[in-house]
């Protein structure tokens, strides 16, 4: 079920601005991969190229090849919607649908993709909310608006929404940056659990978090502002955090730069 992701010389542009250049990396199925690096180095941009979310912005485009289990998703006849159904994404800022109730938010992906049976939706909602560690907090107010939750609850709602459609890859862009330590732990637990079934890629600025949750870590960086971001080092998390090959990685991790 889980998918292997293979990026080959992926380059992404915003108009004429080259945000990332020549990214090559392979993500094994059923692993957690952390993307770290200084602000503006293109972590979010790279993450968004994986489910073809990058091209949603006007003028943005991607060069290179990105295969999911040997299917290049940038082939011309690929159905973008199918790609995104397979590769879910949690955004940095919680973005629940404001016109929908908590329940409707969680099942939005299923319902708008044609699932009608109420019992199926209810089961899926409960399962997703339990996985996201939100069920106990919202089980009595499922009909209330999703925007009425706290920031951390909204983020977990968005995670529940994403896993409710059972994607095979889950992309997370700093999912814990708005969360308290307890919710953060809950999300990290969730990642451990999800790892059994899904491939997970997470962007984080929190070194401890990267060290705790990930199997592999990719370090991105830029030479100077205006340059495209590059992949500096990609290795086992343990290796990166104990004995990185590149001096720059070590500097970043030990806090001497970035």
């Amino acid at each position: 079920m889980a998918k292997r992701i293979d990026a080959t010389s992926v380059t992404a542009y915003y108009g004429s601005f080259k945000a990332i250049e020549d990214i090559n990396l392979t993500v094994e199925p059923k692993t957690v991969t952390a993307l770290i690096g200084p602000s503006g180095c293109g972590k979010s941009t790279f993450l968004r190229t994986i489910n073809r979310m990058h091209e949603v912005l006007p003028g943005a485009r991607v060069d290179g090849k990105l295969t999911i289990d040997d299917q290049n998703i940038y082939e011309r006849d690929v159905d973008v919607t199918a790609v995104r159904r397979m590769i879910g994404m949690v955004f940095q800022r919680p973005n629940p649908f404001p016109t929908m109730s908590i329940f409707d938010n969680v099942v939005a992906g299923l319902r708008l993709n044609g699932v009608r049976r109420k019992s199926v939706l209810e089961d899926a909602a409960e399962r997703a909310l339990r996985s996201a560690n939100l069920w106990d907090e919202v089980k009595d107010r499922l009909g209330k608006p999703g925007a009425g939750l706290s920031g951390g609850q909204q983020q977990r709602l968005c995670i529940a929404r994403t896993i409710a459609v059972e994607p095979q890859v889950v992309l997370m862009d700093e999912p814990c940056s708005a969360l308290d330590p307890i919710s953060t732990l809950a999300i990290e637990d969730l990642m451990f659990k999800l790892k059994d079934r899904y491939t997970i890629i997470i962007v984080t600025h929190n070194m401890q978090q990267a060290a705790r949750v990930s199997d592999r870590t990719a370090f991105f960086s830029i030479e100077q502002t205006g340059d495209p971001g590059r992949l500096i080092e990609y290795d086992d998390t343990q290796k990166i955090f104990s004995n990185p090959n590149v001096k720059k990685t070590e500097d970043y991790i030990t806090g001497r730069f970035g």
């Binding site: 919607t81 159904r85 994404m89 955004f91 649908f97 708008l112 968005c158 994403t162 994607p167």
Partner: peptide, 19 residues
């Protein structure tokens, strides 16, 4: 309507017209 809302829907595999 904020762009992240549309992206949130796209990320669930919801087609554009339905979004």
């Amino acid at each position: 309507v904020p762009a992240p809302l549309r992206e949130g829907a796209y990320a669930l595999g919801i087609p554009k017209w339905k979004t």
